[in-house]
Simulated scan of single mutants.
Amino acid sequence: MYVAVKGGERAIDNAHAWLAEERRGDTTVAELSVDQIKEQLKLAVNRVMAEGSLYDPDLAALAIKQARGDLIEAIFLIRAYRTTLPRFGNSNPVETSKMACERRISATFKDLPGGQVLGPTFDYTHRLLDFKLAAEGEEVQAAEREAEPVDVPHVTEFLNKEGLIEETFPEETTPPDLTRGPLELPAERALRLQALTRSDEGFTLGLAYSTQRGYGRTHAFVGELRIGEVAVEMDIPELGFAIEIGEVTLTECETVNQFVGSKSQPPQFTRGYGLVFGQNERKSISMSLVDRALRWEEFGEDNEGVPAQDAEFVLYHGDNIQATGFLEHIKLPHYVDFQAELELIRKLRAEAAAEQKEAAE
Results as ranks from 00 to 15, higher is better:
D200P: 00
D130A: 06
A143L: 07
Q66R: 09
T270I: 10
W18I: 09
P86Y: 06
S284N: 05
Q279V: 03
N303G: 03
E201M: 12
V314E: 09
M234Y: 03
I243C: 02
P175W: 01
L332N: 11
L191I: 13
F76K: 12
Q40D: 10
N303Y: 14
G163R: 01
I64V: 08
R282H: 12
R47D: 09
A354P: 00
G278H: 01
P170D: 03
S97E: 13
S97F: 03
G318C: 01
E146A: 15
D319W: 00
T218G: 06
G69N: 03
R23G: 02
V3H: 11
E247V: 04
E157I: 01
E238V: 08
L348I: 09
P333Y: 11
L191M: 10
D177M: 05
T83P: 02
L327I: 07
F158P: 00
E31W: 01
E167N: 11
N90E: 12
L344M: 11
T125Y: 06
E95A: 15
Q309Y: 09
H16G: 04
W296S: 04
I321D: 11
G206N: 15
V260A: 05
W18P: 00
A20N: 07
T83R: 13
N46S: 12
V260I: 11
N90V: 13
F338R: 12
H329E: 13
V155Y: 03
T204I: 15
H317G: 01
R127P: 00
D310C: 09
C253Y: 01
D56S: 09
E252S: 05
P120Y: 12
C101V: 13
L332V: 03
H317Q: 14
E146R: 14
L342G: 04
G272P: 02
K98L: 07
Q40T: 10
E343T: 09
E233I: 01
Y2V: 12
E148I: 14
Q258G: 09
F299P: 00
V260D: 10
E9R: 03
L112E: 11
T108I: 15
H16E: 11
I64M: 07
Q268M: 14
